[in-house]
Structures are given as structure tokens and as C-alpha cells.
């Protein structure tokens, strides 16, 4: 009965949305997601979501053009535990397609794993190059926020543990094919221990 609990939940949400014809999504393994996120660096991330958002805007301003002449990089994130998933949205919209609810549920399962208790995460949205760069920053921000919101409700992830950042098309995964679907993705990054817990389970910001 309880086996595949979240899968059942995700399937039920798909029924609720009553959308048909969506492409099948690959099966996501929440256990592997949790393991990917658990390889934690002890280094405290000295980079905030606001700084990342500003860096994206600066990159567009400093390196104008239809495409980013070089990918924006954040070396501070490179050694942090993370994984990348695909989440489908309606075209030009931040509405998550029902075909991706199972993925969101699997991410939530991973974030509820006790090995990740107390950690903070960046939800980073990326687009392909269809549309203007500035516009894509806004779209990816809204999409990252939609994922964060879905993780919070209905999937009950601690809101304070999640921060959404829209990267637009500034970090294309396949710069040779900027409109390719492989560029549209969501990155989950473990940014380190954020909350500690007292003896009776109360939560507080780690010193």
C-alpha cells in the first residue's frame, strides 16, 4: 500500500490536471537524487541568490548580443553537491506540465531524506536561447519559483531551505546548439548546512 507512495501522489495529480498527450518523462530516482545532494562540501557558500541574479544581469549588460558570448560561471558552485533534471513547462509559461509532477515529487522525496536535514538548496532554472536574453532571465526565474512553490505546496519542503534563481540562457549546456532542449533544465544545488536542530527538535539558524 505504501510502496511507491509519492509515485501514486504524482499520478493522482496528473489525473487531476486532466492534460493528455504529454511526452513520457524519464523515471527519476529520488534515492539517487538524495545521494547526489549528500556529497557535501564543508565550505560555506559565499554567494547569495541575489548576487547570482545580479551577476546574470551584469553579464547581459557587459556582454550584449543575441547569445551570451561566453557562459557565465560561478566557480563557487562547481564543487558543491548537485544534480540536474528536466522539468517540462507550457511554452513561454511558468506552469509546470503534469508530466513533470512525478519529477517534482521525487525531488521533494530527496529533500525530505534525513541525510539532507537542515541543508539549504538553490533551485536554478535555465532556458534555451529562444527569446531575448533579458526575457529568458525573467522566465527562468518564474519557472524556478514555480518549482520551489510546488516543492513547498503540496510537497511540504521547508520554504526557508529553498531559494530560486533564474539563469536565463546565460549558462547554455550546449552552446553549439543554443535552441536545443538540453539547455532547458533545472539544477538543484546543496549550498550547505543552513539549519541546526536542538535536542527537542526545534529549528534554528546554525551559528
Amino acid at each position: 500500500m505504501k510502496l511507491h507512495h509519492i509515485s501514486v501522489i504524482a499520478a493522482a495529480l496528473v489525473i487531476c490536471a486532466a492534460v493528455t498527450g504529454a511526452p513520457a518523462q524519464q523515471q527519476i530516482n529520488s534515492g539517487q537524487m538524495a545521494t547526489s545532494l549528500a556529497g557535501v562540501s564543508n565550505t560555506k557558500l559565499s554567494l547569495t541568490g541575489a548576487q547570482m541574479r545580479q551577476a546574470v544581469l551584469d553579464n547581459i549588460h557587459n556582454y550584449p548580443g543575441a547569445l551570451p558570448p561566453r557562459p557565465l560561471t560561478f566557480p563557487q558552485l562547481e564543487n558543491l553537491a548537485q544534480f540536474v533534471v528536466e522539468v517540462d513547462f507550457d511554452f513561454n509559461s511558468a506552469v509546470i506540465r503534469p508530466s513533470s509532477y512525478r519529477t517534482i515529487g521525487a525531488i521533494a522525496d530527496a529533500l525530505h531524506n534525513p541525510i539532507l536535514l537542515g541543508y539549504g538548496f538553490l533551485v536554478i532554472g535555465h532556458t534555451d536561447s529562444v527569446g531575448g536574453r533579458q526575457y529568458n532571465v525573467g522566465l527562468s526565474q518564474r519557472r524556478a519559483e514555480a518549482i520551489r512553490d510546488a516543492l513547498i505546496d503540496p510537497f511540504n519542503v521547508n520554504p526557508a531551505a529553498l531559494e530560486a534563481v533564474g539563469m536565463g540562457e546565460e549558462q547554455l549546456r550546449d552552446p553549439a546548439h543554443p535552441t536545443s532542449g538540453v539547455n532547458r533544465r533545472v539544477q538543484l544545488v546543496n549550498v550547505g548546512k543552513k539549519f541546526c536542530f536542538g535536542r527537542s527538535g526545534e529549528q534554528f539558524v546554525c551559528p
Binding site: L3, H5, G31, T35, D109, P114
Partner: peptide
Amino acid sequence: TGWRTERARQ
């Protein structure tokens, strides 16, 4: 909790 199932999928 779902943790038993999650481990079975790893």
C-alpha cells in the same frame, strides 16, 4: 516515512 521505499530504489 517513505524512506524504506526510497532505499529500495537506490
